[in-house]
Every structure is written in structure tokens, then in C-alpha cells.
């Protein structure tokens, strides 16, 4: 118990440090006097940079990363598979499809509609995955199904581009698909935070069932815990978390995959106890990734989704390599 508490506290403290770093550093170099001015008067120019540009962006990255880390941990527990992640399994792509469709149809003018479309997309993908997972036992098969779902949602998104009459809408969708927390405001934070809280509540309800599922489907079903209820809770948690992340920041891959992986050994594999450390690790990763992306000396700012994919895809290969060896045992 103590061990897990100190893990969470340690991650929390590191997140605070990372947030401070993300507020202090950015493309615009500020002098010591300007920092002083920003602290004394938040409404001043430097104050605006720190509190209305950098801070909401960093907090947004934190929330989106936490949502992805949580969704990844829940999905990995639910599917008993270390390769499960909202991106790999097509939840993100389907959420993106929902949002892209909404943008092209002009829904961007109505606040919350694009976000809701992303959530619906994520929920549909989650339903499909759970239905398939109930019938397919081989973990590889489920990953393949996720890849197919992801490709199909990607194809439909491409079709939307293809048929879209407006290049402006297309550019908007494209920009958004790359995944970023650039120019995010406190309004975005206010959007993603309640979703994360809802997802966390549902995930907490699913936690004992996820732990029991370690024994396999049959033993878990005879254990006395309701696996049907757990499945629904876990599904809602992962769909809300992944959907909210995509709705606010677009498609950011591999955080949901990597975050549980980083903290799994520290909780000794327990998929129930993994949830909070994984959310914290996901948040920390994304705050640091966004800071790194901002500080890269490129003319065009590196998109966060591009950055995480560049780092995450090789990591995915590494985890797959290890998992494949385990499955062969």
C-alpha cells in the first residue's frame, strides 16, 4: 500500500515540477524582470504569456495525457494485453472520424458538438472492441481487429477529405488530426477535466474486476464479481477518456500504450492499481513531450501527435517484441 502511495506522490511531485518548467520556458525568452512582472501582474504582457498561453496549454497536455494513460491502462486490463491502447485499437481513429465528420458538416460553430462527435466515435469503437474481445481469445487477433478498425476509420476520414468541398474545413481537420495542445485555453481545460473525472470514477468501479480478470475470463466470471458490470464500466471509462483526449487535442498516439508500460513493474503488474499511476505517468509524459516540442528549434512547431508517434512507434515495436516472447511460453 505504502509503496503505491509513494509512487503516486512521486509522480505527482514530478508533474508539478514539469508544469513549473512548462510555464517558465517557451519559444519567447523572457528576462528576469519580465518573469517578475508576470508574477506580480498576470494581466501584463509577460503575465499573459505565462498564464493565458503557456499554463493552460501545459495543464491541457497534463489532462489529455492523463486521460490517455488512464484509457490505455483500462484497455490493457480489460483485454489482458500489454499492446492495447486507444490508438492501436482504433478508438482514437474512430473518435477522430467522428470529429472530422462533425467539422466538415459545419458543427464547429456549435460549441461542444465536435467534442461530442469524438466521444460518440470513441464509444462505438469501444463497443465493437468489447464485442470482439468476448468472442476472440487470442490477443494477437484482437490487435489485428483494432488495426483493421483504425485503418477503416482512417479510410473514412480520408474519404471525408476527398469529398469535402471546402479546403478550409479540410485544413482544419488535418491540423486537428495531427494532434496538438497549441493555443489551448482554459476553456479546453474546463472541457477535458470533467470528462477525465467521470472516466476516473468509472475506472475506479471497474478496478476490482480488472484485477480479477488477471485469472482469465472463466475464473473471473465464477469469482463472485460481476464481469458484465465491470466490462461496461471499463468501456465507458476508456471511451470517455480517449474520446475527451481526442476531442481536445486531436490524435495523440502511443501515450496510452507507453504510460501503463512505464509503471507496471512498480505496481507488480496489478491492473487495478495500475490505473492512477498510469494516468499520472501519461500526464507527465505529455507535459514533457509538449515542452520538448515547443523548445525544438524548428520553423514550424512540431505537432505533439507527430512527436509522440515518432517516439512511441519504436516503443510499441519493443513492447510487441517482448510480449510475443511471453505469448510463446
Amino acid at each position: 500500500m505504502k509503496r503505491h502511495l509513494s509512487l503516486n506522490l512521486g509522480l505527482g511531485a514530478t508533474i508539478l515540477l514539469a508544469l513549473v518548467g512548462a510555464v517558465l520556458f517557451g519559444e519567447t525568452a523572457l528576462s528576469a524582470a519580465q518573469y517578475g512582472q508576470a508574477l506580480a501582474d498576470p494581466a501584463s504582457g509577460p503575465g499573459e504569456v505565462l498564464w493565458q498561453v503557456r499554463a493552460p496549454r501545459a495543464v491541457c497536455a497534463l489532462m489529455v495525457g492523463a486521460a490517455l494513460g488512464l484509457a490505455g491502462a483500462v484497455l490493457q486490463g480489460l483485454l489482458r494485453n500489454p499492446l492495447a491502447d486507444p490508438g492501436v485499437l482504433g478508438v482514437s481513429a474512430t473518435a477522430a472520424l467522428g470529429a472530422a465528420g462533425a467539422i466538415v458538416l459545419g458543427a464547429a460553430a456549435i460549441p461542444g458538438l465536435v467534442e461530442s462527435a469524438a466521444l460518440v466515435g470513441a464509444a462505438l469503437a469501444g463497443l465493437l472492441l468489447v464485442a470482439v474481445a468476448a468472442r476472440v481469445r487470442a490477443p494477437e487477433a484482437l490487435i489485428l481487429f483494432g488495426v483493421a478498425l483504425s485503418s477503416f476509420a482512417g479510410a473514412l476520414t480520408a474519404l471525408i477529405f476527398n469529398l469535402s468541398p471546402s479546403p478550409i474545413a479540410s485544413a482544419e481537420v488535418m491540423n486537428w488530426l495531427l494532434g496538438s495542445v497549441q493555443n489551448r485555453s482554459w476553456i479546453d481545460v474546463a472541457w477535458v477535466t470533467p470528462a477525465l473525472v467521470v472516466a476516473a470514477v468509472f475506472a475506479a468501479g471497474a478496478s476490482p474486476g480488472l484485477r480479477m480478470l488477471t485469472l482469465g475470463e472463466e475464473a473471473a466470471r465464477a469469482s463472485g464479481l460481476s464481469m458484465g458490470r465491470m466490462r461496461i464500466l471499463a468501456l465507458i471509462a476508456s471511451a470517455v477518456a480517449a474520446g475527451a483526449a481526442v476531442a481536445v487535442a486531436g490524435v495523440i498516439g502511443f501515450v496510452g500504450l507507453a504510460a501503463p508500460h512505464l509503471v507496471r513493474a512498480a505496481v507488480r503488474g496489478d491492473p487495478g492499481r495500475l490505473l492512477w499511476p498510469s494516468a499520472l505517468a501519461g500526464g507527465l509524459m505529455l507535459v514533457l513531450a509538449d515542452l520538448a516540442a515547443r523548445l525544438m528549434p524548428t520553423d514550424q512547431e512540431l505537432k505533439l501527435g507527430v512527436f509522440t508517434a515518432l517516439v512511441g512507434a519504436p516503443l510499441f515495436a519493443l513492447i510487441a517484441w517482448r510480449a510475443a516472447r511471453e505469448w510463446r511460453l
Partner: peptide, 8 residues
């Protein structure tokens, strides 16, 4: 079935 999904 004796497969245990995670290394608890």
C-alpha cells in the same frame, strides 16, 4: 486454464 495475464 493456468495462464495468468499479469506478473502479480
Amino acid at each position: 486454464e493456468r495462464h495468468i495475464a499479469w506478473n502479480l
